[in-house]
Write a protein that binds this DNA or RNA. Structure first.
Length: 424
RNA sequence: GGAGAGGUGGCAGAGUGGUCGAAUGCAGUAGUCUUGAAAACUACCGUGCCGCAAGGUACCGUGGGUUCGAAUCCCACCCUCUCCGCCA
């Protein structure tokens, strides 16, 4: 949520930021300001009346305790009560509308977020490693490799669920488990994360807190009349662990990781570009969540991105980092780096991680605060990044590590986790 | 799923219609004392909103209601605990 004070004080700047995203959210600013004006004047008026009522009611109490008649005063206060009620209703309407609007307005892109209309304007920040050369044979794609090695089965997934679900089988299931274990160990042992294992069913408050609701309800699997949702990412439960809390500054940065299933409807996403494991309704992901002091967040985003990169470096997978431009950053994000791993069989880069700083946008939504040296409360900054998504990592791994005979030579870091050096 | 009990400030725990934003204890912060620490003593010590400020106002699980006035009475919902049932 944007700060209503900022909207009040620099509305043009807010509108500019929103315009840079594209879309028409900037048009809402005017109405927000109208509501704000209505709300505040109504509230002030109401408070004056409440003060009168409180004073007179005390008076009545005094009179009664002395056994005196208070009927006249009571009548007067009754009238005030009615006015308060009427005022309360109109300010409540303005307040509700203001909140509704604020929840629909995305975050402002960070001032150093590159300007652009869409993903074609995303600059490449850096690359690591090189595309592996396949001199003696042509790189197969993971679907072929997996089918031959019996690593996963899409038909079985569709049979027991529906299209967009997969069953990992045998060594394929084992590899999945090994990867998750490897990722969690990396982040907890080397990057100082605390591991949690949260519910994958969460309530609506969580979805509002991180910004999935109210705009993206249709993207998620809802249950019980959408009172609860299957999480689209562990960002939701993990960040919301800190919802409505006041943190100690000494604890910054708070770094929490979780491996969870993630569920997304991905309506209309079927097609050649999303063949195989690349876009699933259910997938695993290891998520990294940071809660930090506001002046830490920009630097922390670099650290967080490096932590996610470490995954690919350790596995020896070539990748590039791009930064999302103003027209492409996510709803709640203020600055985002995407990490794209090279998948030789696909002959393209796949997004395996998206590392974002949300500024105080999520924190304000979920009332996540910290106490400063003077004992005053401020909103924290939140960040998160994938560390990393499993299926695409899996794809890049198979396709990069394939050998001429169709077997997979695993990176050394995985040997102990997987229990073998090769899959054949 | 059934029966019962209960949800008050960081924690513990009073308060059952007015002077209660809320006793008290613990924890915490600052100070006095001390070579230092401890102890003792003193003071401070919840959150939001409106306001330049003074101050005002709201919040006792959540949402409604009764009342001149609600932490306190009524209704609904949520959650926790205990017992029973079922069960990985």
């Amino acid at each position: 949520m944007l700060d209503i004070r900022q909207i009040r004080e620099e509305p043009e700047r807010c509108q500019q930021g929103l315009k840079a995203r594209g879309g028409d959210a900037w048009e809402l600013i005017t109405e927000v300001l109208e509501c704000d004006e209505k709300r505040r004047s109504g509230e002030t008026e109401k408070q004056v009346l409440q003060q009168q009522r409180n004073l007179l009611s005390k008076e009545i109490g005094k009179l009664r305790s002395q056994g005196e008649n208070s009927a006249e005063l009571e009548n007067k206060v009754r009238g005030i009560g009615e006015q308060i009620k009427a005022l309360g209703e109109s300010t409540e309407t303005a307040d509700a509308r203001q909140r509704e609007l604020l929840l629909q307005i995305p975050n402002l892109p960070h001032e150093n977020c590159p300007v652009g209309d869409d993903e074609t304007a995303n600059p490449e920040i850096r690359t690591w490693g090189e595309k592996p050369a396949f001199d003696d044979f042509e790189a197969a794609e993971h679907l072929t490799l997996g089918a031959n090695l019996g690593l996963f089965d899409f038909e079985l997934g569709a049979k027991i669920s529906s299209s967009g679900f997969v069953v990992y089988t045998g060594a394929g299931a084992r590899l999945q488990r090994a990867l998750i274990q490897f990722l969690l160990d990396l982040h907890t042992r080397e990057h100082g994360y605390e591991e949690v294992n949260p519910p994958v069913v969460v309530n609506r408050d969580c979805m509002f807190g991180t910004g999935q609701l109210p705009k993206f309800e249709d993207d998620m699997y809802g249950i019980e009349d959408n009172a609860h949702f299957l999480i689209p990412t562990a960002e939701v439960p993990v960040t919301n662990l800190y919802r409505d809390t006041i943190q100690k500054m000494d604890d910054f940065p708070i770094k929490t990781t979780a491996a969870t299933h993630c569920f997304r409807r991905e309506a209309g996403a079927a097609g050649r570009e999303n063949r195989g494991l690349i876009r699933m309704h259910q997938f695993d992901k290891v998520e990294l969540v940071n809660v930090v002091h506001p002046n830490q967040s920009l630097a922390q985003l670099e650290i967080l991105t490096n932590e996610a990169e470490k995954v690919l470096q350790t596995l020896g997978l070539h990748y590039r980092i791009i930064e999302l431009c103003t027209g492409d950053v996510g709803f709640s994000s203020t600055k985002t780096y995407d990490i794209e791993v090279w998948a030789p069989g696909q002959n393209e880069y796949l997004e395996v991680s998206s590392c974002s700083s949300f500024g105080d946008y999520q924190a304000r939504r979920m009332k996540l605060r910290f106490k400063d040296e003077d004992g005053k409360n401020h909103f924290c900054h939140t960040l998160n990044g994938s560390g990393t998504a499993l299926p695409r990592l899996y794809v890049a791994l198979l396709e990069t590590c394939q050998q001429a005979d169709g077997s997979i030579r695993l990176p050394e870091a995985l040997h102990s986790y997987f229990g073998a050096e090769e899959i054949r």
